[in-house]
């Protein structure tokens, strides 16, 4: 009884952690390669969720909405990179903070103008709208399991792209030394565009995947942004493996604390971060 309840919470924690990974991997990738801190990353998550809601409301299925979020996110990322972020690669932190702060405000306004400011819910697709028995009479939502699997597949695809393809090698090289990449005859600007498009697409996909699980509301990106920062601090800035394990750790601890020690729920993640900062200030998976 208690054990099966625990299992459900662990599944919830893993699923939350994997969603966090989709968000924080983009954050850490964009930082690692472009040196840019994107505070508007959480707002991209929010835009993904509202986009999902709008597409489903228009009569399309959730699967179409997911595809729209990924493709739309990639296209949006290319535009943002070309118009704005490319110029801010070498600017000071303060300028990057203010640029992305302005984008948060503008994304909020864009959402208010194009969709609305309301709370919404998105229905779970019929195909996955059934409980999966786990053990001891407990059941788990099939959609949540599907999200878990999709996130794992995306993570796997990311590792394959980064480790096994030419563009992945260029991304890793650019993270080490951007001028060197230019000297090798690879156009570093294309690498930046690719990385930013991927980060945006991942954040919007995460938002679209989360839409049927939680409610869709204007401030939904802010909480995820802050927790993603914690993940990146814990995992080590610029480290993909760090983002993966950090996200799972944060997801599990946050979910288990919420379920079993609700008094600590809000603070647990931050306590974890403080512990990591004291013990290993550069993060658990920092390079070098």
């Amino acid at each position: 009884m208690a054990l099966s309840g625990l299992l459900v919470q662990v599944l919830n924690g893993l699923q939350y952690g994997l969603l966090l990974f989709l968000i924080s991997s983009g954050l850490t990738l964009v930082f690692g390669v472009m040196g840019i801190i994107n505070l508007a990353h959480g707002s991209l998550f929010m835009l993904g969720a509202y986009l999902c809601f709008a597409v489903v409301r228009a009569g399309a299925s959730l699967w179409v909405a997911l595809a729209v979020a990924v493709l739309g996110g990639a296209a949006f990322g290319v535009v943002l990179e070309r118009l704005l972020f490319r110029r801010f690669r070498t600017r000071e932190h303060l300028d990057q903070v203010l640029l992305t702060f302005a984008l948060i405000l503008l994304f909020e306004e864009a959402r208010a103008a194009l969709i609305d400011n309301q709370f919404h819910s998105v229905a779970v697709p019929e195909l996955l709208d059934f409980p999966v028995p786990v053990m001891g009479g407990f059941a788990y939502s099939a959609y949540r399991l599907a999200v878990l699997v999709i996130c794992l597949l995306v993570a796997l695809a990311m590792f394959v792209v980064l480790e096994r393809t030419r563009i992945g090698a260029a991304v890793r090289a650019a993270a080490e030394n951007a001028e060197m990449v230019d000297l090798l005859g690879i156009d570093a600007r294309r690498v930046y565009a690719f990385v930013f498009a991927a980060g945006t697409a991942l954040a919007m996909l995460a938002g679209a995947l989360a839409a049927p699980i939680q409610s869709v509301y204007p401030g939904m990106g802010q909480g995820f942004l802050i927790v993603s920062f914690v993940v990146v601090v814990i995992g080590g800035l610029g480290s993909m493996a760090g983002a993966f394990w950090g996200a799972l750790l944060v997801g599990l601890i946050d979910t288990l604390c919420t379920a079993y020690v609700p008094q600590l729920a809000g603070a647990s993640v931050y306590v974890l971060m403080v512990a990591v900062l004291l013990w290993r200030p550069a993060g658990l998976f920092a390079r070098g």
Binding site: A267, L277, L278
Partner: peptide, 23 residues
């Protein structure tokens, strides 16, 4: 605590600490 880190790390940890007080 936050000054154990620098640069972007400092930015991120101050953000998280600030939000801790907010919550």
């Amino acid at each position: 605590l936050a000054l154990r880190t620098r640069g972007f790390f400092f930015l991120m940890s101050t953000l998280a600490f600030g939000q801790l007080f907010y919550f």
